[in-house]
């Protein structure tokens, strides 16, 4: 894993900066976002916010996703949302339900990921983002 990560970093270092930006799952210009990222923000508000808190910042009972996405890959993120996750011990009872059959989540999974990744990368601040071209 470490090797792969190092390799990716090396590759990233070689490609021009603009190219790396293109690969980001979101688009942020002057604090404004594209429609997909905005949709991700809203879908997050419907299905995720009750536990993970406003702006992905976490709560007393669910993790801060702006932190989680610093080490979760897109695939791991998708896997967790679709299948859910349970972390039950004598001191913690954390349960994330499976969203695999929820239309509003599965359809917009990449939008939600893009929004949270923008938050996690520090590209997007808290609150409701404005849309580009509005």
């Amino acid at each position: 894993m470490k090797t792969v990560f190092a390799l990716t970093l090396a590759l990233l270092a070689m490609v021009p900066a603009a190219r790396a930006d293109d690969e980001k799952p979101y688009k942020v210009e002057n604090g404004k976002v594209d429609q997909a990222t905005f949709n991700g923000y809203r879908r997050y508000g419907n299905s995720c916010l009750q536990c993970h808190g406003p702006d992905g910042a976490g709560s007393s009972y669910a993790p801060n996703l702006t932190e989680s996405l610093k080490h979760l890959s897109h695939e791991q993120f998708a896997e967790t949302v679709i299948n859910g996750r349970q972390n039950i011990s004598s001191s913690q009872q954390n349960v994330m339900p499976s969203f695999g059959h929820v239309e509003d989540v599965v359809t917009y999974l990449d939008d939600i990921y893009g929004y949270l990744k923008a938050r996690s990368d520090g590209a997007l601040g808290r609150g409701r983002p404005e849309r580009i071209g509005r």
Binding site: G53, P54, G58, S60, N64
Partner: peptide
């Protein structure tokens, strides 16, 4: 109330 636990209500 715990929803404001991690980051407060307002940026």
């Amino acid at each position: 109330a715990g929803i404001g636990m991690a980051a407060g209500l307002q940026g």
